[in-house]
Design a protein around this nucleic acid. Structure first.
Lengths: 343, 343
DNA sequence: AAATAAAATTTACGCGCGCCAATTTGTAAT
DNA sequence: ATTACAAATTGGCGCGCGTAAATTTTATTT
């Protein structure tokens, strides 16, 4: 950090005794220049704090080092957590992640993709709304940029999809519940905002039939992302009216379960797997708070870390494969059963 | 959206029948050109989808339209919510917000400020760690860019600070608790990561003395951002050992309270304000989940919306004031008491 | 109608860097 | 020492836009 301010790459090149094009090459890939040259440049970098102008770089580059990361709702801890992991993985790989939340609105998802276009990203990681998404917009985007989907799949869009195997995870939970007691009924939203909800319902039905039980599904009214509220109000209504035909309830996700736990508490119902309990409630996702509910929630843990890392790797591998002939891949990770007190 | 692709502003200017400099002027401020000219340009915009190259724009502009938004931890719902509001307010004002999370690490806060420099932001909204922050780095940044602090204050840094009046909010809670029962003791972390924690402790002490009670403070060991875990483990330990001298506990924030509620449930303690209850627990922040805890948590609601909007307005007003002679301002909003079942 | 101000145009330069072709230098192998 | 090849250099063009000064057109005023 010396006194004289470096204005541009030319000045820096002069000071370090290297030609500007070579310095440019260094910044694009330090390993592409001779060791002795690299040493000179890095010595100069220690004495003067210069960094290339991002805007000038990105203007002239064929492709930038920007990676777009779009999630449906950062207020949902699931997405803030997985977004965080994706972000860090991109930084490690020397890219500049740009994290965008669609704030629960498919329209803003479309807007986010539009504004990403202006940044000429090298690639984009998208957790889409699914059928709620502006499918055409996503398809067009897919045609123009390397795209990897995670969390929610959209058929034949993107170079790859990475998520959790809902069939496996729900079956795991159903099996556990059946072994340890009564077969569960299923509680979900009537019009789910996420395609995984549909997969989980399907998985529940199939799993129940495989185990020789009759599937029973209860659907809550309500729109939007206030899952806890919906779980509490609608779940509470069903509980109060004794509408559930079983005492074991599998919720489509933890946030609904958290709401229902709250409703059960209000009604004085004891939730848990002990003989003195009135009700068993289970969820799905291992939400950060499910460990602290009353009682702590039995649930399925998605492998955030694996999903995030794999999604990033899938994207980078398509970036490196110039030929574009890479087949679309779908990767799902197994869920892990987390047994706590609620079921 | 016509067929022929527009490559640059010159082509677009030709098509719309306006000179390029005027078109440039239009994009920088649509109101700065004559109505008839604006109409022509906007007519052309409907037929052809052209948007100026961001990188070329930002390279040559004195100041960009980028606004940096840095929060300590997006995984904390408080910050994801306030970050969301700030983001939308910036978009409304025609700026491009760039939301960065420091993932709980002061070092990454410093890194975030460094990478923001490269984007030549018009201004930055920072929710700092406070004394944990790299104070020198923040000061230097403050000297180079318009900076507004929110949530947590740092003395004489930034053009403005916007947050919640902890003295008022804690006093409000203490007063309510005293009026409705026993005076509270105070539960917090021994080494808080947030300067607001110190203000709240101080506010608690002063409020208690003003009401003629002896303040009692209990501090939990534990580092990092797992507040719920710390609240559950350390709070649970204190509850089990019957270390609290009162049956009313005011927690420094909701996340600690959520952990403690979970511990109380495990211990079979009944939390609430009814005569049959063993314990009253209150929090601070109106965390999104505090409505769904068992029992629902009595707490203080911070005015997210007001804080976010005011912080953005403060920043924009310093952007417009070229002279830089604007005094540093500190704005705090009152907290609102949210009475639920827990206390 | 002329006078004045405001807006648009023309012309031209500069920003900081990517990237290319041709050339020279350096390094390693025969 | 010669050859062969990789790396660095030189010189220069181009990207897409901001911006300035001088000029012309348009709108508003008296």
């Amino acid at each position: 950090m010396g006194q004289p301010k470096i204005r541009n790459m030319e000045e820096f090149a002069n000071i370090s005794g290297i030609s500007r094009p070579t310095v440019s090459k260094y910044f694009n890939n330090p390993d592409s220049v001779r060791t002795s040259t690299r040493a000179k440049i890095e010595a100069a970098l220690k004495r003067y704090d210069y960094q290339p102008n991002v805007f000038a770089m990105n203007q002239n580059r064929r492709t930038t080092k920007n990676i777009g990361v779009v999630v449906p709702n950062l207020a949902d801890p699931f997405f803030s957590e997985i977004g965080r992991r994706v972000e860090l993985a991109c930084i490690d790989a020397g890219y500049s992640p740009i994290l965008l939340s669609s704030h629960g609105s498919p329209e803003m998802e479309r807007d986010n993709l539009t504004s990403l276009r202006a940044l000429k990203p090298a690639g984009v990681l998208l957790a889409p709304f699914g059928r709620m998404s502006d499918v055409e917009a996503v398809q067009t985007f897919d045609a123009d940029f390397p795209l990897v989907l995670f969390d929610a799949n959209m058929s034949s869009i993107g170079q790859a999809f990475v998520g959790t195997d809902n069939a496996q995870s729900v079956d795991l939970m159903v099996e556990y519940l059946c072994r340890s007691g009564e077969a569960p009924c299923f509680f979900e939203m009537k019009s789910p905002t996420n395609p995984n909800a549909n997969k989980r319902r399907q998985a529940y039905i199939e799993s129940m039939e495989r185990h020789g039980h009759v599937p029973r599904i209860y659907q809550a009214d309500g729109e939007g992302w206030n899952f806890e509220e919906i779980g509490k109000v609608e779940g509470g209504r069903l509980l109060a009216a004794k509408s559930f035909e079983t005492k074991t309830i599998l919720c489509s996700n933890d946030r609904l379960a958290i709401g229902m736990l709250s409703a059960a508490y209000d009604l004085g119902l004891r939730v848990g797997h002990g003989p003195e309990c009135d009700l068993r409630i289970a969820g799905h996702d291992d939400h950060p708070f499910s460990k602290f509910t009353c009682p702590p929630l039995t649930t399925i843990a998605q492998d955030y870390e694996a999903i995030a890392n794999r999604a990033v790797r899938e994207l980078f591998s398509t970036l490196e494969a110039e030929d574009r002939t890479k087949d679309r891949s779908e990767t799902t990770f197994d869920g892990r059963l987390i047994m706590r007190e609620s079921a």
